[in-house]
Design a binder for these strands. Structure first.
Length: 402
DNA sequence: CGAGATTCATGTGAAGTATACCTTTAGGCTTAA
DNA sequence: AAGCCTAAAGGTATACTTCACATGAATCTCGTA
């Protein structure tokens, strides 16, 4: 495109009518004023948490539900309302939300407590302090004034798998030492059997109350989509059947509403980019691929180089042969990649742990099998769509200067 | 032929090490009385 | 003498390594039918 062409392009771009009225409505962090099909859950959570407005400690709460069933959305909605009322009536309630899955933010005991303490306005160094010390600072920051604090731990199962359940015990016990204030815990998990592995003492105190979020069915998903689409798009840009198809896609994936909304948004973006004036069903198919690519891309880019090298090793073996990929082979290929890129190879022990991490992210599936006379190993297979593998591969290769 | 021993390749737990970062402390220097 | 700065000492969390033992079914071995 020449200089003149570019000017032309931008002018055209400005002239082109956007399909969106308000794109934000479809983004993941948007909290709508009313949440459809979650009345029961909202009411229950509200009832459980309401005592905090009288500065009485609400029961600890545990929320289960698959991804995209509105857990995070609902708790944020309810807590926003509580905070709003609290502000009007000048009640000292504080609510902190943290997602435990965020790497290098809240995935260890130290980092989690440090993060909460920072939310309370204290400076905590990223490392160096004893964990007890951080607890003390956290403690005194809370007890400094009379108040009620609610801590929300999203994806708590991930944290416990990585860092153990001791910190939950510490958090539940902290109350007995607080003089002026109280804290309540809200745990959110999409692993339904997660609490069964917890220490019984923690289990009983953490799940004093439980709320379960059932998956949405296709009709409910349609309602949600229609409601948001009305706000998000201009009139008449949705072709017949798009919403229905979109809901059906997501219902197939255990009723994941987040996915449905993302699908709709990305489809619209694709339609807009390609110069269509209406969103067609075919755009949904393209969107689905794009989303999956982005999801994995985001995870991969956030990984350190060593981890990327391991994934690249798995991918390149996988693209040659589909079945029967084992740790030893992955390690050999990984070492080769390290030499090529000048990376210092990690030990097989560590690589084995990294492979387990990718398993947790859901990018690969692993299965420990015994091959009898030929030893014991992890059978590894990629859990991502084959059409996007080359793109991911390219991203990593670029990143590692290969 | 079949029960039990063997074997392989790696899983997995525990303990040790390197690194990056923190606070405390002691010594040296400056400054003001 | 008091105050301030700096560098060393001593402490911690995290990522990784080292060491050592655990696993579990295919295969081997050997006693017995």
């Amino acid at each position: 495109m020449g200089q003149k062409g570019l000017t032309n392009f931008f002018e055209k771009f400005l002239d082109k009518e956007s399909l969106f009225e308000n794109k934000r409505v479809l983004q993941a962090n948007y909290i709508p004023e009313t949440i459809t099909h979650r009345d029961k859950e909202i009411k229950k959570i509200a009832t459980i948490l309401a005592p905090c407005l009288k500065l009485e400690k609400p029961s600890n709460l545990f929320i289960y539900g698959k991804t995209g069933t509105g857990k995070t959305l609902t708790i944020k909605h309810v807590t926003n309302k509580i905070l709003q009322v609290a502000r009007e009536k000048d009640i000292n309630v504080k609510i902190f939300y943290i997602n435990c899955k965020l790497k290098r933010v809240a995935d260890t005991e130290y980092r989690l407590i440090a993060q909460f303490t920072r939310d309370l306005g204290k400076e905590i160094p990223p490392t160096g302090l004893p964990t007890d010390e951080v607890y003390k600072i956290f403690f005194s920051a809370i007890d400094a004034e009379q108040q009620l604090v609610i801590l929300i731990l999203d994806e708590i199962d991930y944290l416990v798998k990585k860092a153990g359940d001791e910190l939950l015990y510490n958090l539940t016990r902290i109350n007995s030492d607080l003089k002026n204030s109280q804290i309540s815990l809200v745990g959110i998990s999409n692993d339904l059997v997660f609490v069964d592995h917890l220490d019984p003492r923690i289990k009983s105190s953490l799940s004093e109350e439980e709320v379960i979020f059932p998956p949405y069915n296709a009709l409910q998903l349609q309602d949600i989509l229609k409601q948001r689409a009305k706000k998000a798009f201009k009139k008449n840009v949705l072709e017949q059947g798009v919403i229905e198809k979109c809901a059906a896609y997501a219902a197939r994936e255990h009723g994941d509403a987040r996915r449905a909304l993302e699908l709709l948004r990305v489809a619209a973006e694709i339609a807009e980019r390609d110069g269509f004036s209406r969103i067609k069903i075919e755009h949904l198919d393209k969107a689905e691929q794009e989303i999956e690519k982005n999801r994995i891309q985001d995870i991969v880019i956030a990984q350190p180089k060593q981890q990327q090298a391991v994934l690249l090793s798995i991918i390149s073996i996988c693209s040659k042969r589909k079945r029967g990929i084992f740790t030893g082979e992955v390690y050999e290929v990984y070492k080769g990649i390290c030499i090529q890129t000048g990376l210092r190879p990690l030990t097989q022990r560590r690589v084995s742990d990294i492979i387990a991490e990718y398993d947790m992210f859901g990018i690969i599936n692993t299965n420990v099998i015994s091959k009898g006379r030929y030893g014991r190993t992890k059978e590894i297979s990629l859990a991502i769509d084959h059409s996007i593998i080359p793109k991911i591969k390219k991203i990593i290769e670029n990143n590692l200067n290969l």
